[in-house]
Nucleic acid binder design. Structure first.
Length: 859
RNA sequence: GCCGGAGUGGCGGAAUGGCAGACGCGAUGGACUCAAAAUCCAUUAUCCAUAACGGGUGUGAGGGUUCGACUCCCUCCUCCGGCACCA
C-alpha cells in the first residue's frame, strides 16, 4: 500500500517536470479567438505589413510542410505586430480542384461536402497551432462569393481582349479527363500523374493571352530584388525570349515555277541567310498535305506524318532523338539569293514555335549539319573563322562561333555578330522581312472539362455564337446536385444547360467548361485586402493600402506555375483599372522541403527524402503537437535549419526544443519572487546605469541587449530564425550562470533579462510567452507590448580581448582597455612573449591593428 | 549541354574579409538517487605531445588576390533542383 502511494507520488513529481503545454495552448487559443486579437483594418497611422503564406489545397490533415510555412509566416506576423506595424495575415482555402472531385466519386459523396470536411480538419489543426490569422478575411475559392469574382474578372479580361477561344494542339490527360496548360506538363507527363503521358489533341479551348505580357513579365523580374535567383531564372527560362528576324521565303508555284505563296520563317541568325540549303516544316504543319498533294512524294510523306504524329510527343522531341525527315517534293525561294531550296519535313521541328517552319544552314548549325549529312544535302559556308579556312566537304561539325561573313552578297567581310542587325535592316528595306522577338511562353489554356471549378461565364447561341454572360447575371452558379458518371457532369445536366442568349433572347446552351484552379489562386491575395466586398472583387482603395504583399512564403514547386500566373493577373488587373500594383509579391521566401530518412525506391539506399505517404517517412504534426505542444513544434521547425534549406527531421532534436521551453518555464517559477521584485523596481523607475552596475550585472545586461540587437536583425532583415532562436538559448544560458545577489540591482537585472527572453520568445512560442507574461501580473496580451529596443550603453565594455597574430596565426590573446589606441595595442603585441618567440629574433616588418578585434604582426 | 543553389565536426547548423565550429542534438565522465527518469555540472574538430604549458593540420580539390580567405577572383570535382532539338 505504501509502495503504491510512493509510486503515485513519484509519477506526480515526474509530471510536474514538464510544463502543461496542452492546457496553456488551448487556453490562449480560445482567448485570441474570442477577442479577435488578430483582426485588422486599414490604419494610416501605422506602417502596413502584409505577410502571406500560400493558401493550401484542402486535402485533410496538415503535413509538416504546412507546419513549416505557417510557422515562418506566423513568426513574422507576430514580430512585425510587436514592432508596431499594422499586419495583414490572412488564410483561406484553394478549394476547387480535381482531387476533391475524384475523392467524391470514389467515396460516393459530393465534392462540396468532401471539401468542407477537409477544410474543417485543416482549419482545426491550424487553430491548434496558434496561428494569428484575421479569420474574418478567410476565403474559400469554391464558394459563390469568391468564384463569382473569377467570372467577373474573366469578363473584364474578355473586354480587354485577353480572352480567346481557339482550336489548336492541346495536352490531354487521360486520368484527369481534361486538358492541361503547358506549365502543367512535366517531362511529357501530367503534373498530377507523373506516370501518365499527356496526349496531344486538336480541340477548341479558352485561352488567356498571357503572351501579351511576355515582355513585361520578363523585364520586371529585374525589379524583384528580394526574390530567389533560382525562381527568377526559371521564369526567364520559361518565357524564353529570343531576338531575330521573320524572313519571307516564297513557295515555288507548281504551275508556273515562279515565286508564289509566302513561306515565312523565324531565325535568330539572319547573318547566315546566304547559307540556307534546305527548309524544314513540322510534320503536323497544316500546309504539309496541301503542299505534297499530287507530287510523287504524297504517299510517303503522308505515311511519315501519320507515324510521327502518333509518336509520344515528349520522346519525339527529346534532344537525343534520332533526327528523321524526308523531302516533300516542293521548293522555296530565298528572297536574298533567288535560289531554289528544297523543303523537307522532319520530326524535330516544332509546330508551336515560330511559324512551324525553319530555314536550315548546315554549315553553321549543328542540328542542320547532322541532318544534311544524313540526307546528303549540300553544305554552304557563309561564315569564316579568323584563323582557318573552312571547307564544306571537310567539316566534321558546324561552325557556330562568330566569324566573318563570306559568299553573302553585299555583306562579305562583315563580322557575323555585327551582320545580324545589318541584315535585318536590309531585309526590311527590301521588304523581305523584319526584326522580331519570339517567346517560348504560350498562352494559358484555362478551360477544363471537369465539374469542380468556376463555370466559364459564356453561353452558346445557335444564331449569335458564344456570348459572354452579362455581368448583372453573375454568378453562373455551379449546380450542387449533379450526377457523376460519364465525362463532365455539367454537360449532362439538362436543367443547368438551359439558358437564354443575352443578345437575341433565344434559347441557348451554357458553356460547360470550368476554369483551371490556378485562375482562383492568381488573385486571392487581392481578395484578402477586402474579402467581404459584395460589389467588386475588391475595392481599389483597400488593395492600394495593402498591396504589394511584403512577404510571400511558399514552396518552390510553384516557381513557374502559380507565381507566373499571379504576376500576370496583377498586371492585367492593373490594366483593367482594378489595382495600382504591378507586382504581387515584393519579397519571396521559398521554403525548403521537410525530409526524413527513407529507402530510395530507385537504388534501395537510405537517404534524406521529402516526407511523403508513398515513402512512409512522414511524421504526423498532430502527434507532435499532442506530445510536445504547438510551441515546441513551431520552435523546432524554425530552429532546425534556415528556412530556405531542407529540414531533416530529427526526433532527438525536437526533444531538445521541448527541454528548452521547459527550462524557461522552470526558471520563471524558480525565480518568480526575484523577477516580480525586479519588475516592481523597474516599473517604479528604478534606473540602472552602466557606471553603477556590478560586473556580473553588466555581463548579464550586455548579453540581454546584444540578444535584442541580434534577434531584431535576424527577423527583420535576414529572416534567419534558427540564429534568432539560438540567441535566446544563449541568453537563457547567461541567466543560468548569473550569480544572484539579494539586492535591488540584481533583481532588476534578472527581471530585465527574463523579460527580454519572454518578449523575444513570443513570435516563436506565443502560448508559453502569453502564459508567463500573465503570470508576471500583466493584464494585456504580450502582443500588445512593444518589441524591446536595445540600449547602446549596455553594449559598451571597458576591457576587450584582442587576438594577437603572427603572420595571420593566432599566438596570444591580450587584454586591453576598450579605448586603447593603436600604438598601445601594437606595442603590447610586439612585446608579447608568444609573438616574440614566434618571431625568432626577426624584427617585425609591419603591424596591422584592427580596432577592437585583433593585431597582426608581420615578419 | 544551359541556368540556379549547395559542399564546414558523429549529426542539424554558426561565422560573408579579422579568434572556424555559436546554439542545439548525440556521446563521454561526474553530481543527485536504493535505482532509474528528469535535472544540474564538466568534456567533446582532428593529429602530435603532456604532470602541465604547448604545437601541427583542418571549411570539396587546385591556384590567385590580401598583413589576413569558409568568406573575394580563376580553374576543376561532387551533390541537389530546374530547363533542354525553341531554329
Amino acid at each position: 500500500m505504501q509502495e503504491i502511494e510512493n509510486m503515485a507520488g513519484q509519477a506526480q513529481e515526474q509530471m510536474e517536470t514538464y510544463y502543461p503545454h496542452g492546457e496553456i495552448e488551448v487556453k490562449w487559443q480560445k482567448h485570441w479567438e474570442t477577442r479577435k486579437t488578430d483582426k485588422v483594418v486599414e490604419d494610416d497611422t501605422k506602417p502596413k505589413y502584409y505577410v502571406l503564406e500560400m493558401f493550401p489545397y484542402p486535402s485533410g490533415p496538415l503535413h509538416m510542410g504546412h507546419v513549416r510555412v505557417y510557422s515562418i509566416g506566423d513568426a513574422l506576423a507576430r514580430f512585425f505586430r510587436m514592432k508596431g506595424c499594422n499586419v495583414l495575415h490572412p488564410m483561406g482555402y484553394d478549394a476547387f480542384g480535381l482531387p476533391a472531385e475524384n475523392a467524391a466519386i470514389k467515396h460516393d459523396t459530393m465534392p462540396d461536402e468532401w471539401t468542407q470536411r477537409c477544410i474543417g480538419i485543416m482549419k482545426g489543426q491550424q487553430k491548434r497551432l496558434g496561428l494569428s490569422y484575421d479569420w474574418d478575411r478567410e476565403v474559400w475559392t469554391c464558394r459563390e462569393d469568391y468564384y463569382r469574382w473569377n467570372q467577373f474578372i474573366f469578363l473584364e479580361f474578355h473586354k480587354r481582349g485577353l480572352v480567346e477561344r481557339r482550336t489548336s494542339a492541346v495536352n490531354w490527360c487521360d486520368k484527369c479527363q481534361t486538358v492541361l496548360a503547358n506549365e502543367q506538363v512535366v517531362n511529357g507527363n501530367c503534373w498530377r500523374h507523373e506516370d501518365t503521358p499527356v496526349r496531344i489533341k486538336q480541340m477548341p479551348q479558352w485561352y488567356l493571352k498571357i503572351t501579351d505580357y511576355a515582355e513585361e513579365l520578363l523585364s520586371s523580374l529585374d525589379t524583384l530584388t528580394d526574390w530567389p535567383e533560382g525562381v527568377k531564372a526559371q521564369q526567364r527560362n520559361w518565357i524564353g525570349r529570343s531576338e531575330g528576324a521573320m524572313v519571307n521565303f516564297k513557295l515555288v508555284d507548281r504551275e508556273t515555277g515562279e515565286a508564289g505563296e509566302d513561306f515565312p520563317i523565324f531565325t535568330t541568325r539572319p547573318d547566315t541567310l546566304w547559307g540556307v540549303t534546305y527548309m524544314v516544316m513540322a510534320p503536323e504543319h497544316p500546309k504539309v498535305m496541301e503542299l505534297v498533294e499530287g507530287t510523287e512524294q504524297e504517299e510517303t510523306v503522308k505515311q511519315f506524318v501519320d507515324r510521327i504524329c502518333l509518336e509520344d510527343r515528349h520522346l519525339r522531341t527529346a534532344e537525343d532523338r534520332e533526327k528523321e525527315g524526308m523531302f516533300t517534293g516542293r521548293y522555296a525561294i530565298n528572297p536574298l539569293t533567288g535560289g531554289k531550296i528544297p523543303i523537307y519535313i522532319a520530326n524535330f521541328v516544332l509546330m508551336e514555335y515560330g511559324t512551324g517552319c525553319i530555314m536550315s544552314v548546315p554549315a553553321h548549325d549543328q542540328r542542320d549539319f547532322e541532318f544534311a549529312k544524313k540526307y546528303d544535302i549540300p553544305i554552304k559556308v557563309v561564315i569564316q573563322p579568323k584563323d582557318e579556312e573552312l571547307d564544306a566537304d571537310q567539316m566534321a561539325a558546324a561552325f557556330v562561333e562568330i566569324g566573318v561573313m563570306v559568299n553573302s552578297g553585299p555583306f562579305n567581310g562583315v563580322p557575323s555578330d555585327k551582320g545580324i542587325p545589318k541584315v535585318i535592316e536590309y531585309l526590311a528595306e527590301k521588304g523581305f522581312g523584319s526584326g522580331t522577338v519570339q517567346y517560348r511562353l504560350r498562352d494559358w489554356l484555362i478551360s477544363r472539362q471537369r465539374y469542380w471549378g468556376t463555370p466559364i461565364p459564356f453561353v452558346w447561341c445557335e444564331t449569335c455564337g458564344p456570348q459572354p454572360v452579362p455581368s448583372d447575371h453573375l454568378p453562373v452558379v455551379l449546380p450542387r446536385n449533379v450526377k457523376f458518371g460519364e465525362g463532365n457532369p455539367l454537360a449532362t445536366d439538362a436543367e443547368w444547360l438551359k439558358c437564354v442568349c443575352p443578345k437575341c433572347g433565344k434559347p441557348a446552351r451554357r458553356e460547360t467548361d470550368t476554369m483551371d484552379t490556378f485562375f482562383d489562386s492568381s488573385w486571392y491575395f487581392l481578395r484578402y485586402c477586402d474579402a467581404q466586398n459584395d460589389k467588386l472583387p475588391f475595392a481599389k482603395a483597400a488593395a492600394d493600402y495593402w498591396m504589394d504583399v511584403d512577404q510571400y512564403i511558399g514552396g518552390i514547386e510553384h516557381a513557374i506555375l502559380h507565381l507566373l500566373y499571379a504576376r500576370f493577373f496583377t498586371k492585367a488587373l492593373r490594366d483593367c483599372g482594378l489595382t495600382s500594383a504591378s507586382e504581387p509579391f515584393q519579397r519571396l521566401l521559398a521554403q525548403g522541403m521537410v525530409t526524413n530518412k527513407a529507402v530510395d525506391p530507385k537504388d534501395g539506399k537510405e537517404k534524406w527524402l521529402k516526407m511523403s505517404k508513398s515513402l512512409h517517412n512522414g511524421v504526423d504534426p498532430q502527434e507532435i503537437i499532442e506530445k510536445y505542444g504547438a510551441d515546441t513544434a513551431r520552435m523546432y521547425i524554425l530552429f532546425a535549419s534556415p528556412p530556405t534549406k531542407e529540414l531533416p527531421w530529427n526526433d532527438d532534436s525536437i526533444e531538445g526544443r521541448y527541454r528548452f521551453l521547459n527550462r524557461i518555464w522552470r526558471y520563471f517559477h524558480m525565480r518568480k519572487e526575484a523577477i516580480l521584485q525586479g519588475m516592481e523596481l523597474v516599473e517604479k523607475r528604478f534606473k540602472m546605469t552602466y557606471d553603477e552596475a556590478a560586473e556580473g550585472d553588466r555581463v548579464l545586461l550586455r548579453q540581454t541587449h546584444a540578444t535584442i540587437q541580434r534577434i531584431t536583425h535576424d527577423l527583420a532583415e535576414r529572416q534567419q530564425f534558427n540564429t534568432a532562436i539560438s540567441a535566446i538559448d544563449e541568453l537563457l544560458n547567461a541567466v543560468g550562470k548569473y550569480k544572484e545577489r539579494d539586492d535591488d540591482a540584481s533583481a532588476a537585472a534578472v527581471y530585465t533579462a527574463m523579460r527580454t527572453i519572454l518578449l523575444t520568445l513570443a513570435p516563436f512560442a506565443p502560448h508559453l510567452a502569453e502564459e508567463l507574461w500573465e503570470m508576471l501580473g500583466n493584464t494585456e496580451s504580450i502582443f500588445q507590448e512593444a518589441w524591446p529596443e536595445y540600449d547602446e550603453q549596455w553594449l559598451t565594455v571597458e576591457t576587450i580581448t584582442i587576438v594577437a597574430q603572427h603572420n595571420g596565426k593566432v599566438r596570444a590573446r591580450i587584454e586591453v582597455p576598450a579605448d586603447a589606441d593603436q600604438e598601445t595595442i601594437q606595442q603590447l603585441a610586439v612585446e608579447h612573449e608568444a609573438i616574440h618567440r614566434s618571431l625568432e629574433g626577426r624584427a617585425p616588418k609591419k603591424v596591422i591593428v584592427v580596432p577592437g578585434k585583433l593585431v597582426n604582426v608581420v615578419g
